[in-house]
Design a protein around this nucleic acid. Structure first.
Ligand code: DCP
Ligand code: MG
Ligand code: MN
Length: 675
DNA sequence: CAACAAGCTA
DNA sequence: ACGTAGCTTGTTGG
């Protein structure tokens, strides 16, 4: 069935709008798009909106007509809503007093991402309408000549004044296009069967659709910060920066922009004749230059070069100030809260991403001297609770690989990262266990971190480094890089790697099996069936032929294929971790289809999740005596058993993994304390 | 404006 | 020849 683009109709009459509402109810669906005063999700308002209940019509409506949407449609659980970038439009509608719809919320960005995760940057309406349907969506700039420095919303507002007919035509086309792309992608997703036997449409409808709404609800809550905490850091940091820059200029004999890698490179490796130690990646152009990064500076600092020492100091401060002090303050909005934009389609592994600002890379308090996470606090009368999975991807590796030794270690409650630390750094496992225990005691006694015994800090650092080593090695790190990371010779690094893999022989098999699979099929998937396409695993191979002199040249992956092989292993684990957290978050929220008694209890207790940091859920809860123990019960029940109803929910035949899942819970007045 | 280097997180 | 997955800042050179 194919429809021409219908004529547009402008609706500004409640009686006519009621008729449109009847059409929506009859079709039980509508695509909606909003034109707004700006792109601030907390503040901006709707200046015109469009609705499309079926391909034969398209309406542009005045803001007043939202009363009918609100009064008659939005609370009807049978009506399904289609958007392109649902969280944006839902926010704008909420700003106009229209609540979150009771029915399913679809988003073509998510559909297109699920269809092909590698279309990054091309999931938008213009691109999908063209790529899937050869539909040409107007750029606003072709309808109205955008003036210099004018934003899209401003240009649309001007169009409304200068050429109203074009404005309603442009606006209603987006709702119509959204509907068309939605319908097309529904069919495409339906026809892809995944490795678990589910179709992509199953995953979309049963997991992604409710998740869109859940994430929107969470994102609207925002996260409170103490602006004064950050503001108080500014002055001292700037003074320190200035002081350090003067020291550098004195030692160098002239003024240098310490933020300019190029000026520094000319000074160090040109003028001063230092030997380059590392080279930059050279990016797309492959233009590799001597590097001035921290690793390099460390080496020269250790040789007693004051320029390197001073520059390192500058770097540490500049980064934190630019990104986390000045940067975060720019994003503080209503009620001293930061509202990050959470992208459900932000990664190729089904993890989330967080932008403007990114709240998934706030410095870890363990070695952040400015304790930026202390600026993150709860609303009045509340505290923060962080729940972070223990060694999540190691646990999942144990399950996915079936490695008996790793499963045994986990069943006994031992810590895989500590075990790896013991091997890598040659310290007794028991000492690291004891250090962690001691750290818990010190934390409870409110002893400041800089007063902890050096021994304890060091042992904890071993665990953290071993975490990095363990994942790096599993995901394909080479001997040279590991040698660099550990500060040992290449041979020693190779031996350490051997020893780590020998602990868990099943890991090698898991890695090679995954490689074989991705080479054979050009794609891999996580435990639920979510797909990652890796065509380079099939194309970029070298060798496999006989030379003229009769020698066989072994087949080996080229650089692109080798990369795809590493990515394939990582996807199966990281992607499964993302699934664990997705399901847990929806059970916590008790969102559409994920209603459960634990969620009811959490709601009753006033528990509200406000952030996800990949394997951590951060939440606010009311300050009441003994409430933590009450929250912990349902929270653990949910997070440690995310697959408990998978047979009923998705028809998959397991409820638990071969290993348990465990979480660490921490609470405090600040995010730093909650860790 | 895009490309790049650097550095922060999981 | 390269652990994976991200985002933001500041400089540079068109
Ligand atoms: N350098 C790193 C750090 C983390 N991760 C991935 C794997 C981890 O399992 C997951 C979560 O990060 P955590 O810091 O929470 O690490 P773990 O959950 O493994 O350990 P912990 O018990 O300390 O939480 O992110 C990774 O791939 N590479
Ligand atoms: Mg974590
Ligand atoms: Mn964790």
């Amino acid at each position: 069935m194919w429809y021409q683009l219908p004529e547009t109709e402008y609706i500004d009459d409640p009686i006519r709008m009621e008729q449109v509402a009847r059409e929506v109810r009859a079709h039980r669906r509508a695509a909606v798009d909003t034109e707004t005063t700006g792109v601030d999700r907390q503040k901006d308002l709707v200046v015109m909106w469009s609705i499309c209940p079926h391909p034969g019509v398209r309406y542009a409506c005045s803001p007043e007509m939202l009363k009918v949407l609100k009064g008659e449609l939005i609370d009807d659980p049978r009506i399904e809503w289609d958007f392109t970038n649902a969280p944006f439009d839902l926010s704008m509608l909420e700003n106009m007093g229209v609540p979150v719809p009771a029915g399913p919320v679809h988003c073509t960005l998510i559909m297109d991402w699920l269809w092909d995760e590698n279309r990054r940057g091309r999931h938008g309406l213009k691109e999908t309408a063209w790529d899937h349907l050869k539909l040409n969506m107007d750029e606003l700039s072709t309808v109205v000549k955008k003036q210099r420095g004018e934003s899209v919303p401003d240009a649309f507002a001007r169009l409304m004044r200068e050429d109203f007919a074009s404005a309603i035509d442009y606006a209603s086309k987006d709702a119509w296009g959204t509907q068309a792309v939605h319908d097309n992608l529904m069919l495409k997703l339906r026809d892809v069967e995944t490795d678990t036997g589910l179709s992509l449409l199953d995953l979309y409808l049963k997991v992604e659709v409710p998740y869109t709404k859940m994430l929107h609800i969470m994102a609207r809550r925002g996260v409170r910060v103490a602006p004064s905490y950050l503001e108080d850091l500014r002055g001292p940091m700037q003074q320190e920066l200035d002081k350090v820059a003067r020291e550098f200029a004195r030692a160098a004999g002239r003024e240098i922009n310490l933020n300019s890698p190029k000026q520094l490179r000319d000074l160090f490796f040109g003028e001063l004749g230092w030997d380059p130690i590392k080279w930059t990646k050279g990016g797309e152009s492959g233009n590799r230059q001597p590097s001035c990064d921290e690793d390099t500076l460390k080496l020269y600092a250790a040789q007693g070069k004051p320029l390197a020492q001073v520059l390192m100091k500058h770097r540490g401060i500049a980064k934190i100030k630019g990104t986390y002090v000045d940067g975060l303050l720019k994003h503080v909005g209503r009620e001293d809260r930061i509202y990050t934009n959470i992208k459900q389609h932000g990664t190729v592994t089904t993890r989330l991403s967080s932008v403007s600002p990114n709240l998934t890379n706030i410095p870890n308090p363990e070695d952040d001297i400015y304790r930026i996470r202390d600026a993150f606090i709860a609303r009045d009368g509340h505290r923060l609770m962080a729940a972070d999975y223990k060694q999540l991807e190691m646990y999942l590796l144990a399950h996915l690989s079936g490695d008996v030794r790793m499963q045994e270690v986990i069943h006994k409650g031992w810590d895989v990262h500590m075990g790896n630390a013991a091997i890598t750094y040659g310290v007794p496992y028991e000492d690291i266990v004891a250090a962690k225990k001691e750290a818990g005691r010190l934390e409870a006694a409110d002893v400041p971190h800089d007063q902890w015994p050096e021994e304890v800090t060091q042992l904890l650092r071993y665990r953290r480094n071993a975490k990095g080593v363990g994942f790096a090695v599993t995901y394909g790190e080479g001997d040279a890089a590991l040698a660099e990371q550990l500060g040992v010779t290449k041979q020693e690094a190779a031996d350490t790697k051997e020893e780590l893999f020998d602990q868990y022989p099943g890991l090698r098999d898991f890695i090679f099996d995954t490689h074989d699979d991705v080479v054979a099929r050009g794609q891999v998937s996580n435990l639920l069936g979510y797909i990652r396409h890796l065509p380079e695993a099939q194309s970029d191979w070298k060798g496999g032929y006989w030379t003229k002199s009769g020698r066989y040249v072994q087949k080996r992956p080229g650089p692109w294929a080798a990369r795809a092989l590493r990515q394939s292993v990582n996807l199966r684990v990281q992607g499964t971790a993302a699934a664990v957290v997705r399901l847990a978050q929806m059970f916590i929220e008790g969102i559409d289809g994920y209603e459960n008694e634990h969620a009811d209890r959490l709601r009753e207790l006033g528990y509200e999740q406000i952030l996800q940091i990949h394997d951590e859920v951060l939440a606010e809860y009311p300050t009441e005596k003994g409430i933590e123990a009450e929250i912990e019960k349902p929270l653990r029940a949910i997070m440690e058993h995310p697959f408990h109803d998978l047979p009923e929910r998705l028809g998959l035949n397991f409820r638990e993994l071969d290993v348990p899942l465990r979480i660490d819970i921490g609470t405090g007045d600040t995010w730093a304390q909650a860790h």
